[in-house]
Nucleic acid binder design. Structure first.
Length: 266
DNA sequence: AGCCAGGACAAGT
DNA sequence: ACTTGTCATGGC
């Protein structure tokens, strides 16, 4: 499958912190797991090419039916974002699986990206289903809900293990309906997700943006807080209103460009 | 060696 | 409602 899209850069999309299961290979390609498929993807002659034959899956996952050019042009009216967009051109917001995003961003709390990736990898290797070439699916809530803290010790997630089990049990028993979140408004959805232990505002917002495509949501982590203060001169109590005024419905895209810009620049 | 990590939580003002 | 200490582990 060949994807011709001028607003699609694999490195920027995979390295901007929204996902944790894509890895750069020695030949320059990326390999990752989406649902039950191991996918290889690379750039060739100015296009993106993948060995995945499920066109619908690729289009949905990489948000290929959205034109990023107009939204970038809108955000460019902000001079700071102009630079951030120029730097992070080709970022696309992936449409990830809610359950995987929930667990992944629980693990992300007070953690660093290399270790987040290792913990998730261990989680999949130990409790997921084997796919091809030694890759594993992301373990289901059903499987994880039957584990104990001792079982989960192998992934070395520290105090987050209890949070993972809480999420799995709530999904398994039906207290947490991840499908229902699609139809919720962001504020309602955020409160709903926060019933899971280990899910606060920031983790919830990442899930809403990276799985549910709630693009107005603007997750505020330590990096973004530094950016908003350093580049925009904002104080924390003014973040929400300022972000809504400046970026509006495109807050999530703005956040991702700014996050990548701030992180790679340091 | 020591600080920090895409924070959340509980306990304390 | 705002501040502070703590949490498990390891990357840098």
């Amino acid at each position: 499958m060949i994807i011709r899209n001028k607003d699609f850069c694999l490195a920027h999309t995979f390295e901007c912190g929204q996902c944790f299961r894509w890895n750069l290979q020695p030949d320059g390609s990326y390999i990752g797991v989406v649902q039950d498929k191991v996918i290889k993807i690379w750039e060739e002659n100015g296009a993106v090419v993948t060995d995945c034959t499920d066109t619908g899956l690729i289009e949905q996952y990489f948000d290929l039916n959205r034109d990023y050019t107009p939204l970038k042009n809108t955000l460019r009216h902000d001079a700071i974002l102009q630079a951030a967009i120029e730097y992070g051109y080709g970022i696309r917001l992936l449409k990830q699986q809610p359950w995987e995003a929930l667990v992944s961003f629980i693990i992300s709390a007070n953690n660093n990206i290399p270790r987040i990736k290792k913990i998730i990898e261990a989680l999949c290797r130990n409790f997921g289903s084997p796919l091809q070439d030694g890759y594993y699916s992301f373990p289901s809530a059903s499987v994880l809900s039957k584990l104990t803290l001792e079982d989960l010790a192998v992934i070395k997630s520290g105090y987050r293990a209890g949070y993972i089990l809480d999420a799995a049990k709530k999904v398994q028993c039906g207290d947490l309906d991840l499908e229902a979140v699609y139809a919720m408004h962001p504020d309602q959805a955020r409160a709903y997700l926060k019933q899971v232990k280990g899910v606060g505002d920031k983790v919830a917002d990442c899930i809403l943006l990276f799985a549910y495509q709630k693009f107005a949501v603007f997750p505020k982590d330590v990096w973004i807080k530094r950016t908003l203060h350093r580049l925009y001169g904002l104080e924390e109590r003014d973040f929400d209103t300022a972000v809504a005024e400046k970026f509006g419905a495109l807050g999530g895209f703005a956040q991702q460009y700014l996050f990548y810009y701030e992180r790679e620049r340091s």
